[in-house]
Design a protein around this nucleic acid. Structure first.
Lengths: 152, 152
DNA sequence: ACTCTCCGTGGACACGATCGACCTGAGCCT
DNA sequence: AGGCTCAGGTCGATCGTGTCCACGGAGAGT
């Protein structure tokens, strides 16, 4: 993980569809060298996936909610997590410090669907209570921040 | 925005680096046709970007925080937003219903940096108070959910 | 029926991906 | 020092892909 790897990661975070040839030009290496480096970044887990970022409204997911979850004292955290994983509406799941063990980001099409989701969450074994906040608009999301090279 | 467009979006959400040729095979069109469709999806804003999803720890961003912001009654929301936009640590920004006008997701390297960020946020004109929750771990993030074709 | 437009196909050609062979420098053993 | 080994690079060749262009068919409007 040197400076060049960091540049590659940065470039791909900005535009995942850059060709190897273009990446090679940007970092001053040959295309095969870049190919190998990127391959290693992928298989070592530094690069987890390449995703197209889509306007949620365009695919019928106009409602965004952030939901805090308080766990039952008796519940098993892993079981709760598995239940959450089954619900495709839950796009992100953070395990938090504080009273609320989890914070979920969910996207659904309508408020009615959100209601159903919340009901399902409250019924989930291990969940004591939920607290839902509705996002009126997403100003931005997953903006890649510039990574500075490691201080030597 | 028909079924084929939807499939393309779905495929690219799963893997943004698929070649046009591969996409063409998957949806049963020719490569140029796919090329044109994807181009239109991009320029119409349905596809906003292609990003590599990176393990945050690997690029020195081990601390994730979710920060609720209460606005000053006198403040101008757009100015506050502009201030937030200047802070690269803030990866996502949602405008929320409720007492807290914004919910921010921030990533920094260390708790010390988080402290500095919170201080800066509290000093920002228009910000009345902040409430920070620390994510101990990210179970998953930005999982693409399957899109169902529009019910006819 | 004619024509316009939209959306697709097929062909052509330059460019990119990717493989194998070879090169180079660092570190280490003798 | 000399030479081994290995990691990680370049170069060249081959084949697949991106992308431009000319052409064709379906459907709507006149």
């Amino acid at each position: 993980m040197d400076t060049i790897d960091l540049s590659l990661v940065e470039l791909l975070r900005g535009n995942a569809r850059l060709s190897y040839a273009e990446l090679a030009r940007q970092v001053g290496l040959s295309a095969p060298a870049v190919h190998e480096r990127v391959g290693k970044l992928e298989s070592s887990g530094v690069i987890r996936a390449y995703r197209a970022e889509v306007e949620p409204e365009a695919i019928g997911l106009g409602v965004t909610a952030l939901i805090g979850i308080v766990e039952d004292s008796g519940g098993d955290t892993d079981d709760v997590l598995d239940s959450f994983r089954q619900m495709p509406e839950i796009e992100s799941c953070y395990f938090m410090a504080g009273v609320e063990s989890f914070l979920l980001k969910a996207r659904v099409g309508t408020i009615a669907e959100l209601e159903q989701l919340i009901v399902r969450l409250n019924r989930t074994p291990g969940v004591a209570s939920t607290r839902t906040g509705i996002a009126l608009s997403t100003k931005w999301e997953n903006r890649p921040q510039p990574v500075e090279p490691p201080t030597p």
